[in-house]
Design a binder for these strands. Sequence first.
DNA 1: GCCGTTTTCGGCCCGACTGTTTTCAGTCG
Length: 595
Amino acid sequence: MNATKNYTNLKIAKLLRKIAAAYTLLGENRFKVIAYDNAATAVEHATSELKDLWDDGKLGAIPGLGSSIQSHLEELFKTGKSRHFDSILKKINPAVFPLLDVPGIGPKKAQKLVETLHIKSARSVLSGLEKATKEHKIAAIPDFGEKSEQDILEGIERFKRGSIKEKRMVLPLADATANELIDYLHQKLGRLAKRIDKLGSLRRQAATIGDIDLAIATNDFAAATEAFTSYPKKVRLIEKGPSGASLLLASGRQADMRVSRPDDYGAMLQYFTGSKYHNIRLRDFALKNGLSLNEYGIKNVKTGKLHTFSTEEDFYHFLCLDFIPPELREDAGEIDAAKDHALPGLIELQDVKGDLQMHSNFDLDTSHDPGNNSIKELREAGEQLSYDYVGITNHNPSTSKHTKEQIIAKLKSQTKIIEQINSTTKNTRVLSLLEVDISPDGSLTVPDEGLENLDACLVSIHSVFNMSKDQMTKRILKGFSHPVARILAHPTGRLLEQREGYELDWEQVFHFCLEHDKALEINCYPNRLDLPDVLVREAVKKGVKLSLGTDSHVKEDLVNMRYGVSVARRGWAEKKDIINTWSYARILDWLHKRI
DNA sequence: GCCGTTTTCGGCCCGACTGTTTTCAGTCG
């Protein structure tokens, strides 16, 4: 058992990529190499741990893992090693593999470098290579030159910076950074820019973003490039070509811009929005119909005629597909659904009638951070957004500082204030909620009498994260089974780029929610976005209800709702899946259920 | 090595860029 414990999906994916690189160097059939690369990607994208799938005999459910790779993984899980993988890796100098993470170095270059420089160990390879570049030994190697020597040095430095702090931007930060740049470009270019759009993972609204990619539709490439490269907030210009340019931003990330004529802007937008795997699947689909796709349009393979498209809608329709919203382009069945006219009608921001998590400064002397604004101010902020209701979800009063009676008294006084506020308005109503900690033993940190007068409560984990999957599932379901607990807040506990979430048995959690008519939260806070999109998809498939909460601690953060909506959309959620789309009367009725 | 409403055999996405070269291999997205 212990031997197999460490095979996380991340590690398996890395192993499969190493095998792919090794096969490249051993001169194996290149499609075999691609197969291993694809398998690695499939593992990275898997929604469950492979080890768990294997336990359940469901390893075959991952597309890209055929019988051969499955059998090797099986051996790995059973015995802690794979003789087949080991025998392949043994043939390659181990110093090759760390270099594959350096930008610009692939298997072939890595091999050539370590051989020429006589580097033998994985541990010393980076420092050895760095030393060699400084002694100008690289330029002398055949097929390398002055420029590649510099590139390698830069690559190593980038890698070193990256390995210390390889942080992607959380979606809201990337979005804000991009919007600022887009505003600047609109102002600078005026009517010369017919359109400016985000591209890549940012347009697909992924939870974290690497580089910021933009597209400009214009007939004046030179003006667009000039405007972009003279962006005052750039740290430096990285490169500039006839149809685009790249800048380094203060965050350490790049901003890439591409220009295209309005007539073929649709194909360009489609191509660079990705994802890579969506595009690969789409090209495969197109080829079967005699069509070849590229960033300029769609080519008829037989006649060679290129069709161009000013919009993405036309591009997809030409392929006899419904338009696929960017959030769905992850090769998760969206192309088949588009063919069958079975894409979901995704939830929109304007469908949202209220926000179900925010923290006020009401004096509850809480266990965790209180908010900055009064309940009244938060209600007004909700009114500004035309909400029908806002749910005040202060943390429970600290249990160490108060007696049971004090906790009950504090909660009663808050309920009174909320009743008072509600009596003065018929517009945006305040829901009297509470975010209650689930203790390690599964009990709630508020006595039942304190929960009585609430509309409902959210429950969540804020301490003792290091429990086994089994224990944590039991803990959460015990706390969640309290009749007043209607919503499980930030269900995985992850903090993007900071902390992995705890593991849960999701089958059990989903089943529990369905059985007791309870909801899972999609927390919209920038570094949570929790539930993650892939779990939203699973929940939606099963019919589990979802709630949106910004978890705001200042009233300005209520606008983060749109990022939660993005997560919901990436999980194929429709209006009917999200309880925040309900009227005040209906949500109140649902919150008051005691099951 | 994977995969299948054209296929259990014979295919497997597409093009740009770069550097080092005189026609292309390697890498990337």
